[in-house]
Design a protein around this nucleic acid. Structure first.
Lengths: 143, 143
DNA sequence: ACATAATCAGATTATTTTGTCCGAATAAAT
DNA sequence: ATTTATTCGGACAAAATAATCTGATTATGT
């Protein structure tokens, strides 16, 4: 199966966007996030824990605990979430896995794919959560 | 781990590009392909079998058998290899897996990512093997 | 006919990814 | 203090992907 991001990364991005859409609610339980997004509760909970360790998400333990965005949404880029969960190797490795693919000895698709990869990287880097906030609020609340 | 293509698909593309680079040799043994590309022989052999079933690759059984490109390289697009191995769902599904993501109720990254995805799809569709042949011959033969 | 060397097909194993479970720690309310 | 409800941490299980093995079939040359 061809895929861009791992499930972990997908769910992580969904959850963080969700939290950004509901910032005024304070912390939100993993269960609520999971049921809204229709993703496995235990799994998204684990992912949120690791995003907490990365400083992107804040967690409050105990009764009435839950998760929220840890900092100003304008400071959180999508690439930060990808980096925290999946790492950024995909932006530095050959898309078809050719041995010795490098600018000096490129694989046949090196240049073309390199352009696309750069566009993708730039998009993930330029877009911060607050850029999405309006859309996210409008759309996430419909799900 | 974030990834674009599965290993199957990566190896499949590598192998087909390799065969395109050495068309004048006739059929080439799976073992030679595997050792040149530094990929598992049995695995790439399996992949070539399925590409044979898809009509992209020709196989000759028995002694002095092996694999070669089945048709004019100008007729083989990279997207055909992806379609045969991984399928094309990635070009029709939400990149962050949002429930109900569609043009009417898009996920927050729907538009931006959609552009990139279209660029990727077009690249894979427009490029046929013969477009790569010169580069491939020059580069593959150095590995 | 026989030996050799390859693809082919199916079963099997290994690894990675995805998902679940359980119990401990934490915090709030009574 | 006790109950309740949550995160947290580690182990565990299931599923998907990647890789290997074995034997059958096919073709070639002697």
């Amino acid at each position: 199966m061809t895929v861009i991001f791992s499930k972990k990364c997908e769910y992580g991005m969904q959850a963080v966007l969700y939290l950004a859409a509901y910032m005024e609610k304070g912390v939100i339980r993993a269960e609520d996030i999971a049921s809204s997004l229709k993703v496995p509760k235990e799994f998204v909970s684990k992912i949120l824990q690791s995003l907490t360790a990365s400083g992107i998400v804040y967690s409050k333990k105990g009764k009435f605990g839950g998760f929220s965005i840890a900092k100003d949404p304008a400071q959180i880029r999508l690439i930060d979430i990808v980096a925290a969960i999946d790492g950024l190797e995909m932006f530095n490795s050959c898309v078809i896995g050719f041995p010795h693919c490098s600018p000096e000895t490129p694989c046949p698709v090196h240049d073309k794919w390199g352009e696309l990869r750069t566009l993708a990287y730039n998009m993930l880097t330029e877009e911060t959560l607050d850029n999405f906030k309006d859309k996210t609020i409008n759309k996430i609340r419909t799900i």
